[in-house]
Design a protein around this nucleic acid. Structure first.
Lengths: 78, 78, 78, 78
DNA sequence: GGTATCGAACA
DNA sequence: TGTTCGATACC
């Protein structure tokens, strides 16, 4: 016999489950876009890197790329 | 000088970015629900286990729990 | 023209790479043990759960299992 | 009363646990090296990128970097 | 190979 | 402590 506490927990869990379904739906959409991009010749893996770079502040990105170049030079990478 | 190919890539990337924003919004909502649950005394970590269990087929779940109990007994867990 | 600073960075990187190789070797060993267990009929996924449970303090574990049972009851799981 | 089957499972689990301890020890060592590098002014996050790049085949890396530059140009990233 | 979960690193 | 990020496990 479910009491009030049980119901409160159940409602929270059900809200989470609904949200997780929505999230999964969107994740599927994203996957579809990558698949579509791949089908017309783009490299999904590199697209993911681009998305990551675009998320950064421009200043942070150029700063980061500058330091990265320094390290690569120090290690004979390229 | 952006050509048609550039635009196609850009459009794909922008679709992905919009979807990722939506996904993040929902992830934030989920986090909020767990925080709310924690605030009223529930344990978020255990709630996550429950969510996972509820995702499984009932038969699979009881099968899994039976085997787990067997292993625990074999190892003196509990 | 590598200077002293370059060398310092390189040495740090190389130490990390050696350690990562060792780590990978051990990860491979672990995977092999799970594969061996599976070959004689054990379920690797459930074994991982057992390993996780054994890592916990006995008090924490029984506490956690008690709460989990409560939640499951509240949600009609089992 | 533990039978032979119990013992076999126990031995497998214990082998895994020993290996996981070793693995954790090495992970700690790696963390220490990054901390040491940070203490003398290097950026651990970028060091991790360098380690990742050095893991790739040189050909794969330059190929990847070339495509990445193309995409960045197409998107006005720098 | 890709995604989701988990634990560690950092603020 | 809480969030973010990388590593790991599962599909």
């Amino acid at each position: 016999m479910a009491d009030a506490t049980d119901d409160r927990l159940r409602l929270l869990i059900e809200r989470i489950e609904r949200l997780e379904e929505e999230k999964k739906g969107i994740a599927d959409d994203i996957r579809d876009v990558y698949a579509e991009a791949k089908a017309v010749g783009y490299d999904p893996k590199i697209m993911r890197q681009v998305v990551r770079l675009r998320k950064m502040e421009p200043n942070d990105r150029s700063e980061m790329e500058m330091v990265l170049d320094t390290y690569k030079a120090a290690l004979g990478l390229e």
